[in-house]
Design a binder for these strands. Structure first.
Length: 661
DNA sequence: AGCGCCACTTAGAAGGCTGCTG
DNA sequence: CAGCAGCCTTCTAAGTGGCGCT
């Protein structure tokens, strides 16, 4: 990044700056458990600030590639048609079908698409509501509750210590949760097993509790087998039976999946109440395995218009509360028992409420573009501040900006897995190297971020940043905060004073989008396949910046090998055919195919452990992609599937080819 | 200043669906 | 014509950040 260079130069000019000695600012590690410390925003004189306890909080794949269907065998000399269907699936014309049928099918799709377009609420052309008001009218049917528990058949038994035990219904239900998971790694983990067993025992009758004392003596074999059989059976249903199920599901969606918001029918994102089960916290979560209880209507708060038809609670039940709060976007909420946090029923991403917010998010990021130079200059300057807190803020901001780190709110210890973001980094998460691999001032990051995804990076930084980091780490030990004078609130307060609406996370959005735009500018190619590879590479650059990882697909090696094999076949054919003059057309087609596969192979290989979807969905201003498609004459559905096109309808509609982020 | 709560976005995994291929 | 690869959807956990209260 260019701002980096100028920063480096500046630091060289002014090498020997005064470093404040600040004997008090360090908090020594307090035993093994880390302790949150100090947050004093800078007192007038910084040198003798005393550490104060930081507060604790109680808080509870899409790859954008074209469908492989578009790469297909060509038959005869006639060019095969590929029709893109509304759902993003492509349907190749069957040889059997007559021309008319094909034509009719295509006409139907076009019509359907037009119909849908006509139905679309073009909210982005309407005037916005006054601040804080999210809707004027809201009507819905309430959430959909999962089916109740079906007791085990008599021939499926649970065994304790080798003897069959007929469990009470509540205990049996929870036992089945565990049985369904036994081949998952979770059930081998000590914490998971202990939490499960503790919560399971709470569901048992007194007698059961007295009998069942040891999880290792429990035999869930028959329960597990039954579950496997059920899954199998569902898979083997006949076409007709599957259709029946599908229709039944559709009926539920039709009834519960939509609401009416200000005269428009909008899709709800998650209208189903989460079914009970065992809590699956990520990473080393201290609460993994705990029982996530069944939610009753009595737990659920309904939010809707006063004048609307209030949703009926299930027979024999009542709602916890019905309220009419138009300053929030949720339709229903409940408190979950494991973390004590709130869960919400909200609208789908293609709704006005979500879309408008999303649009706004990108507008704030674009605004940052206009003042980012000044902000960077300021934090470079702040690196020299006499106030320790200001320096820490400057270094943190440098990380957030340069490395797209998350803000790093504090978390309550013991409630969640030990993960950190920028402000919550601890000294053990970075290693300073005066030189490393021929580079100077290298910071080695190694920590677990959101979802326990490891962030590992070796980054050369400016001398001044490096020197500050050394200072921050003096007299500290493992468990101590790197930025002991900083937290996200003070950081964000500072940021919002620099630009309205500016917070730490805006930098991620800004840097992601600007990176995409820059990369797309650089990578220019000839044919569509190569253009798409360039797009994916630009997308990938962003995903790497944001550390969006995925587990390599289980089928990766196999599918790669398959692709290589196909390419080999293609090459062999070319070798043979190229000497036969009259096969010109076949040769040409084969070459095209080969190129396509080569591009695909490169793309797949580079994408092995990178998740493109998260950035595409959340960080990249869709208008950049829409404009790129227009300029490059690439069909939009090559990079956005139907869901994405719906979500970004506002951008697709308003973006011209000359859009600049 | 700091706490506690609340609302809303961001995240990867798992599961489902579909259309290609052998 | 079934089996399965790969895309898409669903699910829900895990973040961010604002606000009001003391």
């Amino acid at each position: 990044m260019d701002f980096e260079d100028s920063a480096d130069r500046r630091s060289q000019v002014n090498v020997k700056e005064e470093l404040e000695e600040d004997p008090d600012f360090v908090t020594k590690g307090k035993g093994k458990k880390r302790k949150r410390k100090v947050d004093n925003t800078d007192a007038p004189s910084s040198t003798s600030e005393a550490p104060l306890p930081k507060k604790k909080r109680k808080k509870a794949a899409e790859e954008g590639q074209e469908n492989s269907a578009t790469v297909k065998k060509k038959i005869k000399g006639k060019k095969e048609k590929v029709i893109k269907e509304e759902g993003g699936h492509s349907v190749s014309t069957k040889k059997k079908k007559t021309k008319e049928e094909i034509e009719a099918a295509r006409a139907l799709k076009v019509k359907k698409k037009e119909e849908e377009e006509k139905q679309r609420w073009r909210w982005w052309e309407e005037e916005k509501y006054e601040d804080g008001v999210k809707w004027k009218f809201l009507e819905h049917k309430g959430p959909y509750f999962p089916p109740g528990y079906q007791p085990l058949p008599d021939d499926v038994k649970f065994y304790y210590n080798g003897k069959p035990v007929k469990l009470s219904l509540p205990a049996e239900e929870v036992a089945l949760f565990f049985a369904q998971m036994v081949d998952h790694e979770y059930t081998t983990k000590e914490v998971f097993r202990n939490n499960f067993f503790k919560d399971w025992r709470k569901e048992m009758t007194l007698e059961e509790r007295q009998l069942i004392m040891d999880l290792n003596k429990c035999d869930f074999g028959e329960l597990h087998a039954m579950h496997i059989k059920k899954v199998e059976a569902r898979k083997n249903l006949s076409k007709e039976e599957k259709l029946v199920n599908k229709e039944a599901n559709q009926k539920i969606v039709d009834e519960y999946g939509y609401c009416v918001l200000d005269h428009h029918r909008e899709r709800i994102g998650n209208f189903k109440i989460e079914p009970p089960g065992l809590f699956r916290g990520r990473g080393d979560h201290p609460k993994q395995g705990m029982l996530k209880k069944r939610i009753q209507p009595e737990d659920v708060i309904i939010n809707c218009s006063k004048g609307s038809r209030i949703p009926e609670p299930p027979a024999g039940h009542r709602w916890k509360e019905v309220r009419h709060d138009s300053t929030v976007t949720w339709l229903a909420s409940w408190t979950e028992n494991v973390q004590g946090s709130c869960k919400y029923v909200m609208l789908n991403a293609n709704s006005k409420l979500k879309g408008e917010k999303d649009w706004e998010k990108y507008e704030v990021a674009r605004k940052l573009k206009t003042c980012v130079d000044a902000i960077r200059a300021q934090y470079q300057e702040d690196l020299k501040s006499k106030q320790m807190g200001t320096r820490q803020r400057a270094v943190a901001l440098y990380f957030i900006d340069k490395l797209a780190l998350r803000a790093g709110n504090e978390k309550e210890e013991g409630e969640t897995a030990d993960t950190v973001g920028c402000c919550s980094l601890r000294v053990e998460h970075i290693t300073l190297h005066d030189t490393l691999d021929g580079q100077k001032c290298v910071v080695e990051f190694d920590f677990l971020g959101k979802d326990c995804i490891r962030y590992y990076n070796k980054v050369p930084v400016t001398k001044r940043v490096f020197k500050n980091l050394k200072l921050f780490m003096e007299n500290k030990q493992e468990g101590d905060d790197l930025f002991d004078r900083l937290n996200t609130q003070t950081l964000n307060k500072h940021l919002s004073s620099l630009m309205p609406g500016l917070t730490a996370k805006v930098f991620r959005t800004y840097n992601a989008s600007i990176t995409l735009q820059q990369q797309l500018k650089e990578l220019v190619k000839e044919n569509v396949a190569e253009k798409l590879l360039s797009y994916n590479r630009a997308n990938r650059a962003v995903a790497i910046l944001c550390n969006h990882q995925r587990a390599p697909p289980k089928t990766f090696e196999q599918s790669m090998a398959n692709l290589q094999a196909k390419m080999f076949t293609c090459k062999s054919i070319l070798c043979v055919f190229s000497v036969v003059e009259k096969k010109k057309k076949a040769v040409q087609r084969c070459e095209e195919q080969l190129l396509k596969m080569e591009v695909q192979a490169t793309d797949r290989e580079e994408n092995k452990q990178i998740a493109l979807s998260t950035s595409k969905l959340n960080y990249l201003d869709p208008r950049i992609s829409v404009a790129w498609c227009k300029n490059m004459e690439v069909p939009l559905d090559k990079i956005y599937n139907k869901t994405l096109r719906d979500k970004f309808a506002w951008a697709i509609d308003m973006t011209e080819h000359d859009f600049v982020f």
